[in-house]
Design a protein around this nucleic acid. Structure first.
Lengths: 206, 206
DNA sequence: AAAACTAGTGTTCAATTGAACACATCATGT
DNA sequence: ACATGATGTGTTCAATTGAACACTAGTTTT
């Protein structure tokens, strides 16, 4: 479907990509013109037209800076900025992202979540979820929502948040630590479920 | 440092964010105006000015669609784009990122690597590294460099890349699968080490 | 040699779009 | 009462910027 690009077209495409990364917005036709030293904006115009026709570029006709990389497509490369808490404070960490220790940026599609998902992250302490292959210092991504059975959740127990697996037994919710050294079942009533695990990031090797 | 936003300013900021996600470019002042039903573009202008002054928004003065999220800042978020391969082909996957299945964007600091690090990613097949708490469908991040003892490496064995732990025994390099069901030691000579694991991303819960 | 394609020049026009000013309203606090 | 600030209206201006046309030149294809 997408025909091969000519050398010049590839160069223009590369420049647009680089410009977007550096400035956060698409370049204007005249900026491309300047970069290549063209004497006329029309040269750029036709290269861009060609790129759009070959599907290598999506553009918003008539709109300023409407050059969009297919890769940078709506939704596609939507980065989400996830606040990382050492210990999740009591209450839901919704509004005040300021108090986060730091932030992690990941693109939504790689994490398999919606681009507008409200996530927060928690650094794992201890080995209570070793059986689920979650080790100390792992960073788990969580989203506040109602847990479903077998979800891994962050629950607030004794003022500290802990990772547990959310289970149903005889129709009643329980929390289960995936490590035989920990109490097997805790009644999940009266407990605050802060979030459901949707992903994990580990740095370094094991 | 950043003062509190008024209700209206927050609404405007939210709209800009939503618009960017949906269209890939920032909205134009008049588009914001329409969305809120303002009769005058100047209202928007002052909200945006206020947002910029409070640091909630970065803008390119005079440029069309120059409304930038601080999160989307240039330089600030040293994002690295990591090509994800299903199966790493023979040879080092350096230049041709084009053949990657997809890309994952993560900020370098969160991964604990240098911003100019050349990484690639590999989706884990099988359970050969279960002992290191790496499970099927995990995505491991690797960098091409000389392995050190106890590093987890991707090695090319029989035309397929496999994760193993790199060990020294009696001064000689060996590869070790962290799973008793797999052959314990393989001589690491004559094998191509494609990369050393520097991180891991898991989507979904366990 | 003719046709087709890529690349570029010079120029013009109009739509898009950011910026500015003066004035009005409402709430808040002094 | 008075000042202050947030919010909104109407209007005007100028810079930014995409789109178009006519013409030239080199290369490849037919």
């Amino acid at each position: 479907m997408s025909e091969a690009l000519t050398d010049r077209q590839q160069q223009v495409l590369d420049f647009i990509q680089a410009y977007q990364r550096e400035h956060g917005v698409a370049p204007v036709l005249r900026e491309i013109q300047q970069h290549f030293g063209f004497a006329s904006p029309f040269s750029v115009q036709r290269h861009v037209d060609a790129l759009a026709q070959k599907g290598a570029l999506h553009r918003l006709a008539g709109k300023a800076r409407g050059l969009l990389h297919p890769a940078h497509h709506p939704g596609d490369s939507a980065l989400i900025r996830i606040p990382l808490y050492g210990i999740i404070p009591a209450g839901l960490p919704t509004a005040n992202e300021q108090e986060a220790d730091s932030h992690i940026s990941v693109d939504a599609t790689s994490l398999g979540v919606r681009p507008d998902a409200k996530l927060f992250a928690l650094r794992v302490r201890g080995d209570s979820m070793l059986g689920a292959h979650i080790v100390e210092n792992d960073v788990v991504f969580l989203t506040p929502r109602e847990p479903r059975p077998r979800d891994i959740v962050a629950a607030l127990i004794d003022g500290e948040s802990t990772l547990k697996r959310f289970l149903l037994q005889r129709g009643r919710p329980f929390l289960h630590a995936e490590n035989p050294r920990y109490p097997d079942l805790l009644p999940a009533t009266e407990l605050i479920i802060q979030g459901v695990m949707v992903g994990l990031l580990r740095t370094g090797a094991a």
